[in-house]
Computed example of a mutant assay.
Amino acid sequence: MPVRRPARIALAAVAVALLSVTASGCGDRGGLRAAGATPTAVSPAKLWPDLRPASSPAYPYAVSTRSIVKGVKVPGDDIHKVDPVDVVEAEIKAEPDDYGSKGAYHGTVDRLKDCRPGGDGTRCPLLKPYYRDLTGDGRDDLTLGFRLYPTNQTAVRVYTVEKHRLVQVLADNDAILGVELAGRALIERSPADISGYEYRTTWVWDPGQRAMVFSRDEYLHTGDGRKTTKPSRSATPSPSPSATHSAGTSSAGTSSAATPSAGTP
């Protein structure tokens, strides 16, 4: 079951700029120069010290998901040999409430048939798979993305291999602008409710929970909301050479991820 994250609340962002001025005159030999008076340090002010601390969270918040994928074998414990279409079909079978005829993502089921040989690749909801060691065990893990029709959401999944079994260690559904792999972290970019802003959610591996856990949710200013900046070609990673599946694009954007060799931190 994917993580059901609560609705985010837009927070006003306050930017603090640090200005450093270096003056150099003609003939200056590089000696030390005074930078002026140093501002007096101000300690944080603790508000409402008598406020009774909360003893429980305001709402349920699942920070991780972990489950064994049933019905999908891993030949030779090599995750590269796992068919991504089989993986998505296993999820569809395990989650009838989501993918059944009355489920929110029922449109994905029919389109997934076009991911097989001979199908219409432009209708395939499965995005190209990416491989990188996210768990730190020295072996590649599998990052999958697939569109959740008829909604504008994209499913983001991460899988690893444990004891000859395929294990899902991250499951999140969101409206996606892009997905990035930075070291062993997965970062999702999603549209915010205010033009010119976006959410960036970071997931990292937690050895204790044996899963990718929610680490950070940022609300960032990306522009004035009137112009669309085309990303540079150098910033767009290429898919894994072993990827064999593709999917059509949508108005919600496409997911992308960097693909270094296995074990690259």
Rank of each mutant, 00 (worst) to 15 (best):
R8T: 05
T264M: 04
P117Q: 13
V16F: 02
Y149E: 09
K113S: 09
S246G: 11
G71R: 07
P260K: 05
T201H: 00
G100L: 06
W205G: 00
V74Q: 01
S246P: 00
P150A: 13
S190I: 01
R147E: 08
Q168L: 06
R226Q: 14
R139A: 11
S190Q: 13
P260W: 05
V14A: 12
D206Q: 07
A104L: 15
C115G: 09
T108S: 15
G76S: 07
G178M: 11
G27E: 08
T154F: 07
D172C: 02
T40K: 13
L11R: 08
V63Y: 01
S251P: 00
Y219E: 00
D83C: 11
W48I: 01
P237A: 11
P44H: 05
A12R: 14
K102C: 02
A54K: 13
M1F: 09
R33T: 12
S246Q: 10
T65S: 12
P57V: 10
A13D: 08
P39Y: 05
S20D: 14
R132N: 10
A211L: 03
K102Y: 07
D50Q: 06
A235R: 02
R5C: 03
V72M: 10
V82T: 05
R233I: 03
Y99E: 02
S240V: 03
S256W: 04
T264I: 05
G138D: 10
T22Q: 13
R165P: 00
S24T: 13
R184P: 00
R233F: 02
V167K: 04
G100D: 04
F214Q: 07
K70L: 11
A12S: 11
Q168Y: 00
T228L: 12
P207T: 06
A94N: 04
N173Q: 13
G27T: 07
G100Y: 04
A12M: 08
T38G: 00
P241Y: 10
S256T: 13
K93I: 03
A62T: 05
N173A: 14
E95G: 01
E188L: 15
A12H: 10
A90T: 06
W48G: 01
F146N: 12
G223W: 03
A35C: 11
A41Y: 09
Y159W: 05
T249H: 10
R200L: 07
H245I: 12
P207K: 08
V69S: 05
D50E: 07
L18M: 04
C124R: 02
W205L: 02
R233V: 06
Y59D: 07
L32W: 12
S242M: 10
K102F: 10
L51I: 04
N173L: 05
F214H: 13
G183S: 06
V3C: 03
D224R: 05
G178H: 09
V72R: 06
D110I: 03
G136E: 06
G103F: 05
K93R: 15
G263I: 08
G196M: 09
G178V: 05
L127I: 07
C124V: 08
R52Y: 01
G248M: 02
V72N: 04
G138N: 10
V88Y: 01
S242K: 14
A262S: 15
Y197F: 15
R226E: 13
L32T: 14
G138P: 06
